[in-house]
């Protein structure tokens, strides 16, 4: 049987996640791997917003912040289990994305970019300044998810970093599966249609305002879940998670890999997460490097790294 594009993408992804540990030089790489996967979850959300629907957001870190702080605060103030707290964070992010998205998605191009940037900055300011609740710029502790302890009790000997590697990997596979499902559905076609020609999408009956809102809300949920995973994994969270640098990082990862493809997005997330670990210069000048990567991709590989490389390998590159 021939595999569909969706099946082969998922298969490649699962194989990479399953086989990568055999090549890890040290246990530390489980930790890096889990950071890669969590970043990739957020970037798959950007693929839906930017790659499918053609809309830009420079404020999605705001939703990651909401997801992250929900895991810190809901257990304390509402007595919720951390997993339910993550769910609550996703719900709040979705509602907020809906409310914020309605007015700002009418804007186009750089107006939309600036408006979303403003939203992200607003969230990170609230998180920094409401010191009494959020702990301010120093951050706040996050309770344990408890799943690893539960597994260990049942005789599965797994280290903390191994647990988060597999757990984040699973989250990424699920996130990729949902995004690929969407791609091949009527909703996904409507999103891609409005990207291709907004006017033609309207004339075939797509309610463009609603379609943009759907993409915005779904991608916000992805960012929120990624934020929750970061918080739960680090057992602590700071307002940096909602900062505009994190938003720009998400967009750069999506664009670097090729915003239209799920696998490309994961590729972009992988490279930009690994580089700072491998090259110390990258660590020191991370912001400069991000800007440079963004400029180079836009100039030389507008379709993103992965699609451009694939085209070049096939001999169709420009």
């Amino acid at each position: 049987m021939k595999l569909s594009a969706k099946q082969s993408t998922l298969l490649v992804l699962i194989l990479i996640i399953a086989l990568a540990p055999f090549f890890f030089p040290s246990a530390f790489y489980f930790r890096i791997g889990s950071v890669v996967f969590v970043n990739a979850v957020a970037v798959v959300g950007m693929v839906i917003l930017t790659g499918y629907a053609g809309q830009i957001s420079l404020g999605h870190a705001g939703f990651a912040g909401i997801g992250g702080y929900a895991c810190a605060l809901a257990p304390v103030y509402l007595g919720l289990h951390p997993a339910l707290a993550a769910l609550l964070g996703a719900l709040i992010s979705a509602v907020l994305a809906y409310l914020v998205g309605r007015p700002i998605l009418r804007l186009k191009g750089y107006y939309l970019a600036v408006a979303t940037l403003g939203f992200g900055i607003l969230v990170s300011m609230v998180l920094s300044n409401e010191t009494a609740i959020t702990g301010g710029p120093d951050g706040i502790k996050v309770p344990d998810l408890g799943l690893r302890a539960w597994l260990v009790d049942r005789g599965l000997k797994i280290s903390n970093s191994q647990f988060w590697y597999w757990f984040s990997g699973l989250a990424l596979v699920i996130g990729a599966w949902l995004a690929l499902n969407l791609h091949e559905s009527a909703t996904g076609r409507a999103l891609r249609a409005l990207h291709g020609s907004e006017i033609a999408a309207r004339t075939v009956g797509v309610d463009v305002a609603r379609a943009k809102l759907i993409a915005f809300v779904i991608s916000a949920i992805y960012a929120s879940v990624a934020g929750s995973l970061i918080a739960l994994q680090n057992r602590m969270i700071t307002p940096d998670i909602a900062g505009y640098m994190h938003s720009i990082e998400m967009v750069t990862m999506a664009v670097l890999g090729g915003a239209g493809s799920v696998l490309g997005a994961i590729f972009g997330a992988t490279i930009l997460t690994l580089l700072p670990q491998v090259l110390t210069v990258f660590q020191q000048y991370e912001q400069i490097m991000l800007g440079l990567v963004m400029m180079l991709v836009m100039i030389f590989m507008r379709d993103g790294l992965l699609p451009s490389l694939v085209a070049r390998v096939r001999g169709r590159g420009e």
Partner: peptide, 11 residues
């Protein structure tokens, strides 16, 4: 032929 978004996400 369009339907609920959730059914599209979950295929």
């Amino acid at each position: 032929e369009s339907g609920p978004v959730l059914s599209d996400l979950l295929a």
